[in-house]
Design a binder for these strands. Structure first.
Length: 197
DNA sequence: AGCCAGGCTACCG
DNA sequence: CGGTAGCATGGC
């Protein structure tokens, strides 16, 4: 077993199955069938944008405040001021209001199709980690999500060099792991959980 | 009191 | 191009 796969199993033993992506506040350990519909896919994108450089705790408050507005058309029906108010706790609320509406417009435009990475990256407000999180958790595409924790951990474990960029870290991880979306989902969640404790 | 959160964009040299 | 200030709240 290679060092990265060994690290995955160590984290899994230590923290158990994480059941990401949380939907309506619910985790679903060992059930990799989610999302079950378009609305859940949309909600994953909302959460991925709101959690940019922000704790999930603050995002949960926003998602609760959004409540029944978690659909593309309802997000677009809100005025900027109304939406800003609902997502206030997530920080950067002016920018994130624009980002959420961009995601809603995009989601309507793709009309139930699976977006490509390039399409997602073309949205103002969606960068590499957000795009890859959407592809991995909303569309079950085995693409490795790299965040600051991932990089920090892999540097500490001497698996990558400290000046590696996003694409290089991602390519390394994908080359060392079986290409299974279930494993990729679990691994990223475990890395985040590992950094909380 | 500061530093950090499940980043991204714009702008700088 | 690679590097970085600005965005903003809440928790510790």
């Amino acid at each position: 077993m290679n060092p990265l796969l060994a690290l995955y199993h160590r984290l899994l033993d230590q923290h158990g199955h994480q059941g990401w992506w949380p939907l309506k506040g619910n985790y679903h350990p060992k059930d990799y069938s989610f999302p079950h519909n378009d609305l859940e896919k949309f909600e994953i994108g909302i959460g991925a944008i709101l959690t940019q450089n922000t704790t999930w705790k603050n995002v949960e408050k926003s998602l609760l405040a959004l409540g029944s507005c978690l659909s593309p058309s309802k997000i677009l029906d809100l005025s900027d001021a109304q939406l800003q108010d609902k997502i206030h706790s997530s920080g950067y609320y002016i920018q994130k209001t624009k980002k959420l509406k961009n995601w809603a417009n995009f989601f309507i435009k793709i009309n139930h199709c699976t977006p490509t990475r390039e399409e997602l990256l073309s949205i103002w407000g969606v960068g590499p980690e957000t795009a890859d999180s959407i592809l991995l958790y909303a569309y079950q595409i085995p693409i490795f999500v790299v965040d600051t924790y991932t990089k920090r951990l892999l540097i500490k474990e001497n698996l990558i060099s400290s000046n590696a960029n996003y694409a290089q870290v991602q390519a390394y991880c994908e080359s060392q792991l079986p290409r299974q979306y279930e494993l990729f989902q679990e691994f990223h969640a475990l890395i985040v959980e590992n950094n909380k404790s």
